[in-house]
Every structure is written in structure tokens, then in C-alpha cells.
């Protein structure tokens, strides 16, 4: 196990997330793509902390901030999904093409 291999694994997770976020029609599945991207970002951050930061706790702090971002994204995303379903009866992106009420 080396830093290069870990970063390639993280890049693979991020790439899958990009594919999912761009290809899925359902809002909830798009959010799963975003989570997958953050999964790769956390893995890359912790790998760099382990191999390149000489054990500085600030590297771990960055990962904690990324996790907080993940929680914020999920909570606001779900709230928006519920709201848009109430207003438009829409659950896929194709149903919300126009920004009107």
C-alpha cells in the first residue's frame, strides 16, 4: 500500500461519483453521486495526512470538515427534494426544467 495506490483508489471513487451525479435522473441518486465524490475526497485527504503531513492533526481536521460538508449537503438536499416534490410533484430532474413556481 502506497500513497499512489491510495490516491488512485480515491480517484476511482470520485470518478464513479462524477458519473453517478451526471447520469442519474432521480434527485436522490444524484445525491448519492455527490456523496461518492466526497467519499473519494476524504480518502485522498486522509491518505495525504498519513503519508505527507508528518502526523499533523490539521490533516484529520480537514477530513472532519469534509464530513461536515457531507452532512450539510445530505440534509439540505433531502429538504430540497421534499420541497420540490410538494410544489412540483417532481422526483426526477427532467420535470424541473424551468425556474417557475
Amino acid at each position: 500500500m502506497s500513497l499512489e495506490i491510495l490516491l488512485v483508489v480515491a480517484a476511482a471513487l470520485f470518478g464513479i461519483g462524477v458519473y453517478g451525479a451526471l447520469s442519474q435522473q432521480s434527485f436522490v441518486m444524484i445525491m448519492m453521486g455527490l456523496e461518492m465524490m466526497l467519499n473519494g475526497a476524504i480518502l485522498a485527504g486522509v491518505s495525504l495526512w498519513y503519508f505527507s503531513a508528518a502526523g499533523s492533526p490539521k490533516g484529520q481536521l480537514l477530513a472532519i470538515v469534509a464530513m461536515a460538508v457531507m452532512a450539510v449537503e445530505a440534509a439540505i438536499g433531502f429538504a430540497l427534494v421534499i420541497n420540490i416534490y410538494r410544489v412540483r410533484k417532481a422526483d426526477i430532474t427532467e420535470k424541473v426544467k424551468a425556474l417557475r413556481g
Binding site: 480517484a11 470520485f14 470518478g15 464513479i16 458519473y19
Partner: peptide, 8 residues
């Protein structure tokens, strides 16, 4: 997705 993977 493949581009992001290859670039990163």
C-alpha cells in the same frame, strides 16, 4: 467520470 478518474 472516466476523465475525472484519469486526471486525478
Amino acid at each position: 467520470g472516466v476523465g475525472a478518474f484519469l486526471g486525478l
